[in-house]
Amino acid sequence: MTPTRKRRLIGVLVIIIGVGAASVVAMKALNENMLYFWSPSDVKEQSVPAGKRIRLGGLVAGGSVSRAPDSLEVSFIVTDGAASIETRFDGILPDLFREGQGVIAIGEFSREGYFQAAEVLAKHDENYMPPEVADALEKAGHTESGQ
C-alpha cells in the first residue's frame, strides 16, 4: 500500500471510530442518563419497582442521619421538600455529605420499602465563598443548603 493510501485509510478509520464513539456516548446519555437522577417526588409518582437500579437525588433531611455504632452503615432521609425517602448505605460517604447537602444515591428499593444505596455522591451548589462569609450569610437568614 502506498503511504498516501495508508494515510487516507488511517484518516478515514479515525473518523469512523471518532464519530462512532461520539454517537455511542450520545446515545448512552440520551437513553437513560439525560435525566441523571430521579427526585423523591418522581419516585413516588411513578412507583419504581423493587430491584430496579435508579439514581435518587435530593437533600439529606436535617436530623435524619443515624449511624450504626459498630459499622459503616448509615441511614438518612432524602427529600425534595414534597416527598421523602428513607435511604440506607453501607460504605464510605464523600466528604461533602452532611445534613442539608444535596446527594445522589445510586441503588435500588428493597422489598421492605427503603432505598438501599450502593454508592452515594455529593452534589454541591454554584456558590463559592470563605467560611466567614457563609457564617455571616447564615446568621442573616439565608439557608446554606447544598443544592
Binding site: A26, L96, E119, L121, K123, H124
Partner: peptide, 27 residues
Amino acid sequence: MWGTFWVWDARLTSELVLLFLYFGVIA
C-alpha cells in the same frame, strides 16, 4: 468533592462529545 472521577451526566457527556468533535476536525 462528589465522590467520583466520572459520571455520565449531561454536562460531562456533552463536554466529552466536544473533545471527540475536535479530534474529528483534526482527523
